[in-house]
Write a protein that binds this DNA or RNA. Sequence first.
DNA 1: AAACTTGCTTGACAAGCATCAAATAGGGTG
DNA 2: CACCCTATTTGATGCTTGTCAAGCAAGTTT
Lengths: 245, 245
Amino acid sequence: MAELTPVPDYDDALRSACSKCNLRELCLPSGLSNEELDQLDSLIRVRRFYRKGEHAYRAGDPFDSLYAVRAGFFKTNLLNEDGRDQVTGFHMAGELMGLDGISTDQHPCDAVALEDSELCVIPFSRLEELSREAPSLQRHLHKIMSREIVSDQSVMMLLGSMRAEERLAAFLLNLSQRMTARGYSPSEFYLRMTREEIGSYLGLKLETVSRVFSRFQNEALIAVQQKHIRILDIPKLRTIVGQSC
Amino acid sequence: MAELTPVPDYDDALRSACSKCNLRELCLPSGLSNEELDQLDSLIRVRRFYRKGEHAYRAGDPFDSLYAVRAGFFKTNLLNEDGRDQVTGFHMAGELMGLDGISTDQHPCDAVALEDSELCVIPFSRLEELSREAPSLQRHLHKIMSREIVSDQSVMMLLGSMRAEERLAAFLLNLSQRMTARGYSPSEFYLRMTREEIGSYLGLKLETVSRVFSRFQNEALIAVQQKHIRILDIPKLRTIVGQSC
DNA sequence: AAACTTGCTTGACAAGCATCAAATAGGGTG
DNA sequence: CACCCTATTTGATGCTTGTCAAGCAAGTTT
């Protein structure tokens, strides 16, 4: 039978290659040479599709791969021993998930698709091997990990020192900026997460999230209808974030 | 003159070597072979002393080294554009500071000695070189970075979902556990930081910190006199942390 | 199309923490 | 030793956000 197995679809293989991926400047390949890109291609062979609600991994699963979002939208959430459930991040195309699993060889959190999505699976030991041979890949991996630390720390600042309106303004501006970086409209998009998930991420209750959205709408800062958001006044949102100066 | 320069103090060199350091099981060298340890020794040649209040680095300084706390106690704090000041961590012997600087080649935060302290300076490019040759060092560095991500995320959970009493109970238990790992008493120590710094780290005002300490003292959970803390009832503190189950 | 489910909005009220203010304790210095 | 400065404690009050509850909107199933 083996001899009769059809060769892999060439077009498909091309499209799945980092070197041809339109996210390559945002994702792991950013800044690599052509030769290094080819090596990355040989490493990342598996893509997986997830329907809305499916888990990419769960807390406690053994860690052996990182996951790059190729399409769609994910949340990661930490489930405490005492039943507390905290959303630790939202992840869109070009972003890496799973770095938090390296430390204990187990994923500490769940990763859940918030819409139909697609991930590239990056075997971590092979990535380490490759980064031993390619210093610029090594440095890039370190930068990505460091960027995650920095971004977690800025969430700490948000949670530790901002009021509800400031948190939500910062959240909307952050989403807007990430949409822009991906070539989408900075001012109009669909929220893929519920009010409760936003609240969990921002340390607020869902009713507070809803109320602040309504207040922003009354002040003509945004137009919101369910999950559809239009941002009408970015400068004013910025002043709200930097308010308690 | 050069010929008359005295040879470095041998005892001192030994004591400064990772291979002879009594923190080696907590710090970067943990889990390395003897050969790898020798290579680390050749890399880490500079120790620096800091008086209470001195900065190891400041936000905006160029990043080129990591710093391992050899003795003493540090805080790191982020200074926002709008003047907000958030303590992002407290760092004791054996812990690494500066990982957040890799991403932009600049330190995003200040590192300040909270008592007279000593740091080992670890040139990061040389550490990367070495970790290309020593896979177990490479993996260990990745684990340390990942551990930082995990610990920042658990602070996010603390700030996002715990009330003042729970935050302070978690804070005290965390300090106690880190003291234990270093061979100190788990139940009696001096706080090196002010109430305001604790509050900043935990997203509370200093008055709230003080009030909760007083409440804990009235309930015989701790005995506190200024910076001197004795933890009297660890089990009960644990139940407070896991309360909103 | 009706019933159901899930997510969102809004109101009334309460709890928790912040703010403002004043008093106290310690540590360091002349 | 007296003084000063900073850190801490404690009280009174008010704001922000959480809690509880009810109704609404939109999508899904029967």
